[in-house]
Design a protein around this nucleic acid. Sequence first.
DNA 1: GCACACTATATACAAATTGTCAATAGTTGA
DNA 2: TCAACTATTGACAATTTGTATATAGTGTGC
Lengths: 122, 122
Amino acid sequence: MRWGRWGGPRRLTGFLHPCLLLLLHRGDAHGYNLLQGLEEFGFDASSLNPGLVYRALHEMEREGYVVSEWEEESLGPPRRVYRLTPRGDEVLSQWVEELRESRRALDRLIEAHKTHLEEHLP
Amino acid sequence: MRWGRWGGPRRLTGFLHPCLLLLLHRGDAHGYNLLQGLEEFGFDASSLNPGLVYRALHEMEREGYVVSEWEEESLGPPRRVYRLTPRGDEVLSQWVEELRESRRALDRLIEAHKTHLEEHLP
DNA sequence: GCACACTATATACAAATTGTCAATAGTTGA
DNA sequence: TCAACTATTGACAATTTGTATATAGTGTGC
């Protein structure tokens, strides 16, 4: 087991998916576009593998959370433009509720650690 | 792909490990004991598989974050009692810093979603 | 006209993480 | 003695994430 196995940033499982849906709520977009928008949520667009974004979009299209079509008259390489569906809007709300619960757990740990530090200083 | 694949609670990767270290900071404990203490951080002790806790403890012992020994004079089945090491205390602080960063990302998403809801109500 | 950088999408494969299942064992109480 | 609870462990499967690479169009500089 190499060092740093639990040393990296502690991300939420499936955090990418709700971020993408939220970005799509603001307007239709294609993958490369979304890749850049993700910086708002702490992702580093230059180091984030684009494949992850495209894969997430494909998965959510299979679930009916988004729909896509090839853009007509696009400059440059063909782009697949995604749009949020009503179903996608629904699951986004559900996911945000779950994220609130995760935040509560997170807060409990952070608070408990703060208390632990205070008890060990004079 | 079955439904609900991203339907479950959005947990943090490796969230179990810092929770265990924090509980151990309060005092030495054995696995079964820690299992119950985890409820404080949103885990459901009755549905959480004990194997996950024991595995996490073994991993952290290999890394030198905790040490353990079989308890002498224990009532009931033999218990392996864990103690936090100074190294373990150090990594706990690092992890909590990372969790603060995750919290910020979480806040941005939750806030953005709140804004999105407000813009769609009259 | 060609190498190169940038935009854009896609897929196969590997690694890491988490979850499930079952085995073992001692104690207590009915 | 049977069941319930405490207690630990390991094998195996599923899920999730990360890496690597392939394809392709456009514009810029030389």
